[in-house]
Design a protein around this nucleic acid. Structure first.
Lengths: 135, 135
DNA sequence: TTATTTATTGTTATGATTACAAAGATATAG
DNA sequence: CTATATCTTTGTAATCATAACAATAAATAA
């Protein structure tokens, strides 16, 4: 399996201890975490970690194209290390985000238009997930 | 042309002065405004208007299905009175949101899945608009 | 009219994000 | 190796959107 620091180098990101830790967390926890979730997960084993560093790190990752920032959750930014074309589902009840892979490739085709220079698409679904449907 | 208070009644919303003013603004200004933009536009002619009322009003409109809340802008909620299936484009430079109508209807088909009960889709494009491409 | 519900308002609290400056770590030139 | 410059991390403070809440005002029903 690809190591986080190798993955970072592919995107010309110098792998510091903090950056590798954040990337490693993203690669092993495909839960589209928020900044706070990342920080909370790492700070027990990295007590000097600053939340500002997590913000800076994710901004850098997005800028270099190593991760995707999701806007599906109006409240917090969320991050996805899977940069391939896929959609997302957000449960309105529990707030969890899930990947939606079984979509036609045409969904991610950028429309031809002279009005804008389009360079990415987000396909976001909303509803209620299975485990919340009991309520 | 349909009046705002008639439109509101179609969604079982009692048309108070404030609600009609907000809906009227949305119908005449198809710019996907933020709460603050709506408030700033109306307060000169409605000096007692409260921003809390604008929040309450839009929450009610969304709940009743009279307007669509967009999550395309990570910073602020934006509102669209056009509830038909269409996509949105956000310019990363100026932040303005534009409608994208020339999309295939299949884009808005909800995928068949047993994992989630999906009830809506958002198709969001990102890039740079024509007037920002000079920079 | 009086009671009850609904809508609006203003204030305050919360929580995510950004700005900024200082400290620390790393790389580079001499 | 040492000095200097650059990059990275840290912590604090500021900003800004949104939510919570209680009080007033307006509308509706009895």
């Amino acid at each position: 399996m690809l190591q986080s620091h190798q993955y970072l180098r592919q995107f010309s990101i110098k792998p510091s201890v903090q950056r590798s830790a954040v990337m490693n967390f993203l690669m092993k926890n495909r839960i589209h975490p928020t900044i706070d979730e990342i920080y909370m997960a790492l700070v027990p084993t990295m007590p000097t970690l600053s939340k500002t560093t997590v913000y800076n790190t994710l901004d850098l990752f997005v800028e270099k194209g190593a991760v995707q920032a999701l806007v599906i959750d109006g409240r917090n930014a969320r991050y996805d290390v899977n940069i391939s074309a896929h959609g997302h589902f957000m449960c309105k009840s529990c707030g969890k985000i899930h990947d939606v892979f079984d979509l036609d490739a045409s969904m991610f085709k950028l429309p031809e238009t002279t009005d804008f220079k389009i360079d990415s698409v987000d396909v976001s679904y909303f509803g209620v997930c299975k485990s919340c449907q009991g309520n």
